[in-house]
């Protein structure tokens, strides 16, 4: 679809804003509407739009399969790692308050943000992987 000028230009214009909005939704999750899953899906939508218009090869140039596989596992690892870290610091699993015993609210904000990052990374990369596996080869489009 690279020869479709309108789609190409609009995609180039929109993808950065989609990625920024996805990160905003991920980081905003513990205070308002949003969260890791929704933000990760918006991030993935940005990548998938880029891949649809510019082709899978261009998408793989900066987001190769090895990187998405690594990040999909790394997000889960970050989630579980936060939980295990709270256990090692003397609390229960995902008991965020132990991160900052003098201000439990701050510790909870930090722990929740890290968990949201983990969820967002995993959801985004898994969505991109699903698109990768079910999309047609480029010469058929």
């Amino acid at each position: 679809m690279k020869d479709q000028v309108v789609l190409r230009i609009i995609t180039k214009l929109l993808v950065p804003f989609m990625l920024v909005f996805g990160m905003y939704v991920i980081a905003h999750g513990e205070l308002g509407p949003g969260g890791g899953f929704q933000g990760g899906v918006i991030l993935a939508a940005g990548f998938i739009l880029y891949g649809l218009v510019w082709g899978k090869e261009d998408l793989h140039r900066f987001l190769p399969r090895s990187l998405t596989d690594l990040l999909a596992a790394g997000g889960v690892l970050l989630y579980a790692g936060v939980g295990v870290a709270t256990m090692l610091m003397g609390g229960r699993f995902l008991d965020y308050a132990v991160f900052n015993p003098s201000h439990p609210g701050d510790g909870e904000a930090l722990g929740m943000l890290l968990v949201e990052y983990g969820v967002g990374i995993t959801v985004c990369t898994v969505m991109v992987t699903i698109y990768d596996m079910i999309s047609e080869p480029e010469d058929l489009v």
Binding site: Q4, V6, L7, I10, L13, L14
Partner: peptide, 10 residues
């Protein structure tokens, strides 16, 4: 304004 006409065009 940017995306709705683009979707229609596509």
């Amino acid at each position: 304004i940017i995306t709705a006409p683009t979707a229609t065009h596509a």
